[in-house]
Amino acid sequence: MSTPDLAPRRTFGGIVAVWVLAAVAGVLIGLLVPPHWRAQWISVALGGCLIVSFAVQLWYGRSQAFIQRMAVSSLGAAVVLGLITAVFALAAVVSG
Rank of each mutant, 00 (worst) to 15 (best):
G82K: 09
T85M: 12
S74D: 03
R10M: 05
S74G: 07
V56W: 02
P35N: 07
Y60V: 01
R10Y: 05
S63N: 09
V93E: 13
P8M: 00
V56T: 00
G61H: 11
V18P: 01
A71Y: 11
A17H: 07
L83Y: 10
G13M: 05
A39W: 10
V87C: 08
G76A: 05
V16K: 08
Q40R: 14
V80P: 01
F12A: 14
I51H: 03
G76W: 02
L46R: 08
G26I: 00
R9A: 12
W37Y: 02
L6Y: 07
G30N: 03
F54M: 13
S95D: 04
I84F: 06
T3H: 15
I67K: 14
V27Q: 03
V27M: 05
I42D: 09
T3E: 15
Y60I: 02
L31T: 04
R38N: 01
T3C: 11
I67D: 15
F12S: 08
V87T: 05
R62H: 15
G26K: 03
G14M: 09
W41R: 11
L28N: 14
Q68D: 09
L83N: 09
F66V: 03
L50R: 01
A17G: 02
I84L: 15
G30Q: 02
G13C: 03
A65E: 12
I67H: 13
A89K: 10
W41A: 08
A65D: 15
V72A: 04
A25H: 04
S53Y: 06
S95P: 01
L31Q: 11
C49E: 10
S43G: 15
G76Q: 04
I29Q: 02
V44F: 10
W37V: 00
L21F: 13
L21N: 00
P8T: 00
G26W: 01
I51Q: 08
V87R: 06
V94P: 01
G14P: 12
A55F: 13
G96V: 05
T3K: 15
G76P: 00
Q68F: 06
A65P: 03
S43H: 07
T85G: 14
A92H: 07
V16D: 04
L90F: 01
I84T: 05
V44C: 05
V52M: 11
L31I: 06
L28W: 12
V79K: 09
F54C: 09
V94S: 10
V93C: 02
L6P: 06
V87Q: 04
R9D: 04
L81Y: 07
G82D: 06
G96R: 10
W59Q: 11
V72M: 07
S43C: 12
A17K: 08
R38W: 00
I67F: 15
A71S: 15
S95K: 13
